[in-house]
Design a protein around this nucleic acid. Sequence first.
RNA 1: UCCUCAGUAGCUCAAUGGUAGAGCAACCGGCUGUUAACCGGUAGGCUGCAGGUUCGAGUCCUGCCUGGGGAGCCA
Length: 431
Amino acid sequence: MAKVLLKDIGQHVGQEVTIRGWLYNHRSSGKIQFLIIRDGTGFIQGVMVKNDVGEEVFSLAQGLTQETSLEVTGHVKEDDRSPWGYELAISGFEIIARAEDYPISLKEHGVDFLLDHRHLWMRTPRQVAIMRVRDSIIRAIRQWLHDNGFCLIDAPILTPAACEGTTTLFETDYFGEKAYLSQSGQLYMEAAAMALGRVYCFGPTFRAEKSKTRRHLIEFWMMEPEMAFVEHDENMDIQEELVKYVISQILEHHKQDLAALERDVSRLEKIPNMKFARITYDEAIDFLREKGHDIKWGDDFGAPDETALASHHEGPVFVEGFPAHIKAFYMKPHADRPDIVLAADLLAPEGYGEIIGGSQRLDDLDLLLKRIKEHKLPQQAFEWYLDLRRYGSVPHSGFGIGLERLVAWICGLDHLREAIPFPRLLNRIYP
RNA sequence: UCCUCAGUAGCUCAAUGGUAGAGCAACCGGCUGUUAACCGGUAGGCUGCAGGUUCGAGUCCUGCCUGGGGAGCCA
C-alpha cells in the first residue's frame, strides 16, 4: 500500500493509499462520518460510511478526539464538496496515539492562551502557512545573496562587548568574565568583508529592551550583508533588488499560503516592478512638519512619524541622510555635510515600519577613534575593529534585514509574535 | 519606566449592588454529505490575590499580581 503525503494526493486519484497524520476535525452523522486529517503537508477530508466499514470500525471512529494521530487507508477521489478538492473514502484506520482533551479548539482563542500553547498553536493552518512563507523568505534571501557573490560567514553569538554600545544587552557569565548575547553581527562582517569582499551573516540577535509593542521581539533573526568597495547609493540599489527578488519569489510559490492568511496581494504584486522612493531626512522632516507632527531637525522618528512617511508612498521608501548624532558611531559622514551620515532606513508600506537599516561605514581611522571616544566606548574592546582601518581600509557598506518584520509585512500579520516559531517577548519565555 | 484596557467554567464571553449563565470543548444519545455541522441531555465555578464599604460585592473603593494595546528604543 502506497504511503502518501497529502501535498501529493492529487497524483493518486483512483488509487488505494495510506496516509498518516492527525485528526484536525471530526463531524459525524448516524451512518456517515467526516474525518479531516492533516499531515503537515496538507489536509484531506476522509469520508467513512457505516455500511462500508462495518459497525465496529465505525463506532471506534465515533470516539476519535481532535489531534489523535492516525494511519488511514482509503480510496482517493476528486470531490468538489471537500474544501481541499480531494476526498479519501476510508476503508480502515489505526490509532497511533489517542489525544486527550486537546486544548486548542476550532473556535477563537485569546492571545495569552495561544502563546502559552505555542507548541500546539503551531499546528493550526494559519501558523503552518506563516512558517512555510518564513522558510521561503529565508531561502530567497540566501539564494539572491549567493547568486550575487556573497559568502555566508557566521558571526559569534557570545560577544565581549556591545557592538553598538547603545541598546541593552543580555549579560551572561563566560568562565568568570562578563559576556553578552549578540545584538548584531555587523562589526564581524566588516572584518569578513575585508577578507572575502561580499559576505553576510544570518542569525539570532538579542535585545534586552523593555519593548512591548507589536513591532518588537526580545530575540529575533537578522540578515546582515556587508560589502567592500560598495558606497552608499549602491548599497541602497542592492537592498532594493534583494527585496524585490524576495517578494517575487513568495508571490510565485506561495499563492495558496498567502490566500490562507487572507493576505491582499495586490499591493505586493506591484513591488517587483516599481522604483522604491528615496527621500532625504531633511525632506522627511519638512513633510512631517507640514503634516502637523511635533518634530524638528535632529529628532529621531517615532512610530507615528514612520507610519506617516510610509503611508505617503505606495511601495517601500528609503529615508537617507540622518543627523550623525542620532545614529551609530560607525557610520560615515556625508562628504559635504559632516552633520549627516550616509545611512538609509527602508520603511515598508502598510504600517510595517523599518525593515532594513543600512549605512556606508566609517573607513577613516582617526575619525573612527574620535567617534569611539565621543560615544564613550572602551577603545580597547574595539582594537580589532580599528585594525580594519589600519591595514588597507576601503570604502564599504552594509545593512541589516529584520527577518520577522519582513515576514510580518509579506504575510500581512498584525504582530511580530506570529512571524517566529517560538517568540520571546517581554516577560514571556515559555514555551 | 510611563499611559491605557482587561482578568468570571478547559476555551471565548454574558450577568442595574440582590440565587453566577450561554456557546464551544469533554461525556451520553439522535441524524447518510458535513464544511468552526446540527438537535437533545450530563457534568463542569473559592468570579486573579489581599483588604475595605454595605444587610448583601463578579459588580463600588484601595493595594498588589498577571496579561493585552501603546509610548520610548529599535530591526
